[in-house]
Design a protein around this nucleic acid. Sequence first.
DNA 1: CAACTAATGCGACTATGTTGCAATAATAAA
DNA 2: TTTATTATTGCAACATAGTCGCATTAGTTG
Lengths: 127, 127
Amino acid sequence: MGILRKTKNLETILDIFRQSNEALSANLLFERLHERMNRSTVYRLLERLEDDGILHSFASMDNVKFYALRQDCISSGDVHSHPHFQCTSCNQVVCLEQEVVFPTLNRMRIEEAQIFLKGQCNSCLSQ
Amino acid sequence: MGILRKTKNLETILDIFRQSNEALSANLLFERLHERMNRSTVYRLLERLEDDGILHSFASMDNVKFYALRQDCISSGDVHSHPHFQCTSCNQVVCLEQEVVFPTLNRMRIEEAQIFLKGQCNSCLSQ
DNA sequence: CAACTAATGCGACTATGTTGCAATAATAAA
DNA sequence: TTTATTATTGCAACATAGTCGCATTAGTTG
Ligand SMILES: [Mn+2]
Ligand SMILES: [Mn+2]
Ligand SMILES: [Zn+2]
Ligand SMILES: [Zn+2]
């Protein structure tokens, strides 16, 4: 798969991700677009951008799929993953820098890992 | 909150959790009940059992809420959490024993943490 | 037993996400 | 530039997970 055509909608969505370092759900994105893009299109573009390796996705604790720009990451035999954090005050979701490595455990082969944290973000703490 | 009345439905659901150490979603539970309990009742009982501290819940990577019996766990200032694991072959979801402690980070106050792992479980690996 | 009210079933509803299809627009070919 | 090709879009209908109001049922208490 991958991006075949560079459309206006695709550029619009990419710009939103580039203009902030937040992670966004399809619905949050849809709201920021002031509903000027069809809901299906938003979902399809997010999927395409993930297939293409430009975005990555993860599930929030509320069972909502979030997307964020993919940073280059280490690859090796072990599974790598960075945590995601949601502030319980301002609700912002962000990728945390710190990479976590999951060593192969004795009794199971780990292939994918997700760490999701909730709490108070720095800017909400200092208010 | 908490359990006020010990009903048949409640016992039925608790028995299913006690008879295996799996984690289950509302729908998986509904299927195991051979649809002999109303869907809303399943959701409501899961919520009640969680409020009462008998079950705990977490989100799977597919954005589905899973429940499992709550084991007694350490409490201290730090946030404690055990990982959850889903086998990509047999789809079983289980709680892992190992506790993970999240120390308070410099720039944010962590209040809740979730680790979700996917891969091959022991019994699927040895086949 | 009767009285009280939590729990249940039912149906309608919300939120999130998916899909088929005809129309549109990005790209390639002429 | 114009035309042809087909990926992308909007739309509507659908799917799945979960919630809620309300009348009925069934634990619990005395
Ligand atoms: Mn991330
Ligand atoms: Mn668990
Ligand atoms: Zn915040
Ligand atoms: Zn397995």
